[in-house]
Design a protein around this nucleic acid. Structure first.
Lengths: 251, 251
DNA sequence: CGTCGAGTTGACATAATTCAAGTAAGGTGG
DNA sequence: CCACCTTACTTGAATTATGTCAACTCGACG
């Protein structure tokens, strides 16, 4: 099942960009050269804390990690649920201080990436720079989707949208994933990502199940009716695909 | 007062980046070369609609514009309230289809920017590419702030956070702005940006006023106690400023 | 065998929405 | 310059969605 494959899957930044374009050998080598020695981090361990001084970015190679912000009352908002191939910590890049906390949800393997190495990469490979910019904008669009979901839809729709998002992103890196995948997320994590409480997430999961949209077996989720779920979740498809026409030529 | 100056202020992309670094004459010329002939767009007129085929980006030169997504029930979520110097439509750049609607809130002046010109710019000026990437990440961090505000704080805090955000961004382009500024936003716009209803925004404005945090005269807002408002809004300062150390050298 | 984390469920409390009915301000045409 | 119209703002009462609190189940794990 998809769930198993994701936890084993080893995916770097270059592999992620390869989905978008055919990288030249020089480009691929330069991107792979960014990543420092891989670190193993056990589940529930912070990869990097907010408010700490500037730190490297990380490439998430295996496992699931989250980025979140803490509030003064102790609650947290999960900003992004990361999967292999994601660049962790990029929103903090412009700032001298880290803006968000990175936490390993499962055991993960991450490779540190130095900011200055990215600057050098931009200089040597303009097309890769454009790809980094593209990915940043795609992440921004994803954040807007979450904003819309949380700001303007009901709880059941928010939970449904999160499930669909997880499914689609896994499919992107592993087309073999069908309608079933193992979620690896506690209801509390879903709650902190959707702006709800874990109690209410539980109720909404039950509603989705009772309506025959999803099924749950132990930690796995099976999406039974993707179309109906997408309708309920007010899910927006990214029509028209990806536009690469504007990219500069490769080096 | 600050309000007047913003509506007159003419600010391009180059002027915005100039706040971050000293651009070389070649860099500045290249950035200014991106912008096509300026178009005047009257208030309440769409600049560009979602789901339409690929279109140019725009530099917002004067006025206030918003980006939003429509939902199937007719409600909308405002994603960003733009001010002069902002690049409009960037989140749609990776996609073949436009993702969000751009609407002029006041009379605005915008300059179209072709995607392919940005690709060429990345090739010729790597430091500018890095700056574009930085701005994209800063916008992403701003989206995360909104996400946290909407997902995990009460209505009064959400409204307060929006007011503070507007104030701080205006200060960035016009340091002369004090604690008073004219908001130019209807309560319905604030509602669509904060995930509330206009009725409830109205009540929250009253609460903020009754607590002595803000004052309202006609369309203007005066922030009376910025510290207390920031506390109520759970506002996060971007400690430590901007880190430019990793940028490649200028050309 | 006991503990711990996660999930589940019910009763109740509260924040925000909806509906409805106003008022105030600004713009326009006579 | 006034009458009118529109748009935004304001306020109260009733309703709904979600949160809070508390108790309980279940499975994993040592």
């Amino acid at each position: 099942m998809g769930g198993l494959s994701i936890s084993v899957l080893d995916f770097g930044i270059a592999d992620r960009l390869q989905i978008l374009v055919d990288l030249t050998p020089a480009e691929r080598a330069a991107i792979e050269g960014l990543e420092g020695p891989v670190r193993n981090i056990p589940r529930q361990m912070p990869i990097r804390s907010e408010r700490s001084p500037m730190q490297p970015l990380f490439a998430l190679r295996t496992g699931v990690a989250i980025s979140y912000m803490l509030l003064s009352d102790g609650s947290r908002q999960i900003l992004r649920i990361h999967q292999p191939g994601d660049l962790l910590g990029a929103p903090s890049m412009p700032f001298a201080t880290v803006q968000d906390t990175l936490l390993a949800l499962t055991d993960v393997r991450v490779a540190p990436i130095d900011k200055t190495a990215i600057g050098a990469l931009f200089e040597a490979h303009p097309r890769v720079a454009a790809l980094f910019f593209m990915v940043a904008q795609m992440e921004r669009a994803a954040a807007f989707d979450r904003l819309t979901s949380i700001g303007r839809t009901l709880a059941a729709a928010r939970v449904g949208a999160l499930l669909l998002d997880m499914l689609h992103r896994r499919r992107m890196v592993d087309p073999a994933v069908g309608s079933a995948f193992s979620l690896h997320l506690t209801q509390e994590v879903i709650a902190d990502a959707t702006g709800l409480t874990s109690v209410h997430v539980n109720r909404m999961m039950r509603v989705l199940q009772d309506r025959g949209l999803v099924e749950r077996r132990n930690g796995d989720v099976v999406i039974l009716d993707e179309v109906a779920l997408a309708r309920l979740a007010q899910h927006r498809k990214r029509y028209g695909g990806i536009d690469l026409s504007w990219l500069p030529s490769a080096r």
